[in-house]
Nucleic acid binder design. Structure first.
Length: 481
DNA sequence: AAAAAAC
């Protein structure tokens, strides 16, 4: 498992490519790059698994461009620029991001590239396609539109890349994907990359590959060791408060917050804005314009909390995001790995906090199994709902829970103070006494755990609920992953 | 249980 080369300059890449890489500030290769680039240069099919945030895009696009350059041509004629490489991604934002990276890598070559995805006007995309591109980056639906409109001709495609391959092969995408593949020559190179591969998807994937080389840098489904993972017990009513508490405690300004639903995402974003945070929502019911704006505002540091669905779970590469919160435990364990991969990128440290409601035990157990790491759900020491109630009655503003000093913008000025007038104290809804969360949950391994229902019935006791147990013990008083 | 991807 030694890497033959570690520096880009030692690779057999064209000067135009190494120059672009150098200009982007990269010198040494990551492990996935060191292993994948030489293989992709041979033109073999590849199934690649690597942790998120380790440079997968460069790992396939640099050697791909190198291969394409063998018959590079400078003709202006579209006919001389047939689509030769197709890169497919599961979300529009990701397509946009990967396309921008590829354009950067290719900027000193004669190769042309463009991107097509839904939610945007067809016409400019059509115009670009008609000019002729060697590299086409796309999401499936819009690509099919262009194929059927004869804007994109794919019968000369030599390379197909499925990024986030396990998602592209899942049931929601598979029909579109199969249709797209039916337009491509059988004789071609296929590259699959993802941070996660379930056994079923791995089997399915291999049916699309010919004698593939498997590259597995870290174990598939592994989470980055630089990310501190925490699981905190929280009822739905307490989740927002818990997030605010952790943000303050840790002095964290920016974070992704994942919700399992578009509605929940919209609501949470609005609630956080009411709390005084600079939050924005990113989900599939927003217009593409709003989606791109929200993402850009977050990148620029104009928005601190990006509240999103799993549309943002995969691949998005934003520097220096210190934390990810799972407001909801993801339905698929794989999505957990992708979500928390938004932080701790490129060797940086990160914090991932997952809020675990009583009914989430099964999902947490799935994650534990997938990442092969023991998970302990902690009860976070926070001022209890009752204490909060008392202090509110005493006239203290609920906004005192908001983060304060660390909210200075990176640039220095406090955009918080300037952009938002401080509002008066608002009444906080009194939380009912809660048998689980007003004291630490105590369970021992020998003791049967409760079936965690979303809300204990009024007057129910821990003992009564325990009697209805179904799932294995997960909840322990303290500790970490 | 949901989300994503085309109009």
């Amino acid at each position: 498992m030694t890497s033959p080369t570690l520096s880009f300059s030692e690779l057999a890449l064209a000067p135009s490519l190494t120059q672009a890489v150098a200009e982007m500030g990269y010198e040494t290769m990551t492990p996935i790059q060191a292993q994948a680039i030489p293989v992709v240069l041979t033109g073999q099919d590849v199934m690649g698994a690597a942790q998120t945030g380790t440079g997968k895009t460069a790992a396939f696009s640099l050697p791909l461009l190198q291969r394409l350059m063998r018959h590079e041509n400078s003709s202006a004629s579209p006919a001389r620029h047939p689509v030769r490489a197709l890169v497919l991604l599961p979300t529009r934002e990701l397509a946009d991001q990967v396309a921008q990276q590829i354009a950067q890598y290719a900027k000193h070559t004669k190769l042309r590239s463009t991107v097509v995805f839904g939610g945007m006007d067809m016409k400019p995309q059509t115009a670009e396609l008609k000019k002729g591109v060697e590299v086409l980056v796309a999401t499936p639906g819009r690509l099919l539109d262009h194929i059927e409109a004869k804007n994109a001709v794919l019968h000369q495609v030599e390379y197909v890349v499925l990024d986030e391959a396990d998602r592209m092969l899942d049931i929601g995408f598979l029909p579109d994907l199969q249709r797209i593949l039916s337009y491509l020559p059988k004789e071609r190179t296929t590259l699959l990359f993802s941070a996660t591969f379930s056994p079923e998807i791995k089997r399915l994937a291999s049916s699309y590959l010919q004698n593939p080389v498997t590259i597995e840098v870290a174990r598939a489904n592994a989470t980055a060791s630089t990310v501190e993972q925490r699981f905190y017990a929280a009822h739905d009513d307490d989740k927002r408060r818990t997030i605010c508490h952790v943000l303050q405690e840790r002095g964290i300004r920016q974070a992704f917050i994942f919700s399992n639903s578009k509605l929940g995402c919209a609501r949470l974003s609005r609630a956080l804005e009411r709390d005084g945070y600079r939050a924005a929502a990113l989900h599939g019911d927003k217009s593409q314009d709003e989606r791109l704006k929200a993402l850009e505002a977050f990148k620029q540091g104009e928005v601190d909390l990006l509240v999103c669905t799993d549309v943002a779970a995969r691949g998005l590469d934003i520097k220096d995001v210190p934390a990810v919160f799972n407001y909801d435990v993801p339905f698929n364990a794989e999505d957990y790995v992708h979500r928390i991969g938004r932080t701790g990128r490129a060797g940086a440290s990160g914090l991932a906090v997952t809020l675990v409601a009583p009914s989430d035990s099964r999902l947490v157990a799935d994650i534990e199994k997938l990442i092969k790491t023991r998970i302990t759900v902690e009860t976070l020491a926070m001022p209890s709902a009752r204490a909060r109630q008392r202090s509110d009655a005493g006239g203290e503003s609920p906004r005192s829970e908001r983060p304060s000093g660390h909210q200075e913008a990176r640039n220095g000025a406090s955009h918080f103070a300037s952009s938002r007038p401080v509002r008066g104290a608002r009444p906080v809804r009194a939380a009912p006494a809660d048998p689980f969360f007003d004291r630490p949950y105590e369970a021992s391994a020998s003791e049967a755990p409760p079936t965690w229902e979303s809300k204990p019935a009024p007057g129910s006791t821990l003992r009564q609920i325990k009697a209805k147990r179904k799932v294995p013990a997960l909840f322990k008083p303290a500790g970490s992953v």
